[in-house]
Design a protein around this nucleic acid. Sequence first.
DNA 1: GACATTCATGAACTATAGTTCATGTTTTAG
DNA 2: CTAAAACATGAACTATAGTTCATGAATGTC
Lengths: 207, 207
Amino acid sequence: MSNRNIRVPQQDRGKESKNSIIEAGLRLFSEKGYYKTNSKEIAKRAGVSIGSFYMYFADKKALFREIVELYNQKICDVLNDIEDPQNSSFVDEKTFLNYLITKLIEAHAIYPQLHQELTVMAASDPDIAKVYNNTRVEAVNLAKRFLSSRIEKLRIRDIDTVSVLIQTTMEEIVHIIVFSDVIISKEKLINETTDMLYRYLYKDKKL
Amino acid sequence: MSNRNIRVPQQDRGKESKNSIIEAGLRLFSEKGYYKTNSKEIAKRAGVSIGSFYMYFADKKALFREIVELYNQKICDVLNDIEDPQNSSFVDEKTFLNYLITKLIEAHAIYPQLHQELTVMAASDPDIAKVYNNTRVEAVNLAKRFLSSRIEKLRIRDIDTVSVLIQTTMEEIVHIIVFSDVIISKEKLINETTDMLYRYLYKDKKL
DNA sequence: GACATTCATGAACTATAGTTCATGTTTTAG
DNA sequence: CTAAAACATGAACTATAGTTCATGAATGTC
């Protein structure tokens, strides 16, 4: 274990150094994955010395954790920006469902390669798992709120199970869109997913 | 690059050594992931020397590739074992769909942690990506055959998109069941998924 | 039983990721 | 202007993963 003092940057140049390390780490972890990226390379890409790296971060994992926390925050911001036009009869439910799916996908599509990396690291590191779980719980809760508030229009009853099911479906749709070499149009996939969920969730079958 | 001759075991003891290395690799890669597992540890767990490891495998990656190919074969076996009772009116379509989903999940649930690891490695290694893709294409094709053969009973038309959608949904359902710390019953999830897909895919809405 | 082949071993070597720290520079405060 | 604090640097050190190979034992063949 290290005895160094990890510094919180006070001056502008310090903040800039730390930020560029975070930026470089984000890029490299996304491009090549955590284990294929080494600290010297991150420092180089950031345009700072390896010494500066270890001035602001205890070790490589600390950088990853910090990046993942920032990422988590961004996702939560996107989720919180979603407005529910419930009872505003201007927008029909299916249109809103399509909007909701698009937003959830958008949220998961922030640095999608990092998200992939996060999934992996979470499997082997409890600290990372915690951060990862926060993100997912946030999205599941959004789904839960959405479902609860229109329960009388829905045919499904087990909100807990269904929330997990649809959040997971979203997450994986992003995965296909980003990673699949199967050429499939994003719009088609979103539309099919909307269609699937609408028929599954809602009582009336407006087509 | 190495100049050694990689040996194919001729005698029983050689075969046993190689098998136990594969077995140990499978366990360790699944438990701790590829990068956190080192060759000496694999040899130790297998009960052989590090020398034997490098007698049968060019390097660590070669072992991983061989394991993944075996895994791929097992999945394909499960998929090929699925019988389609099409036109045997003894079984209704929804019951069969439930059976199909269970089987697909079963197929993806062989060494699920390895499957996770495979996903990751595929992202950074073209060789591994190829093997991974084989497995997915096999499953998508199964879905495609299933859909094509009962197209007149279905409301969906874009078979290519839908095949990918349902294969992916299956893959991710396994992921939830295996990795989620959200406590959700496997049966519930399978039933909800069946319900969702049935309503999405089929014309008639037998409830 | 003798010779060849296969197999097993682990100390030792190579390569490299991760990390530290002594030294020097820039900024801030008084 | 000067001292203190913050910051920057990269050669050098540590730790360890990955790999090789000289040596010897087990097995097969004649």
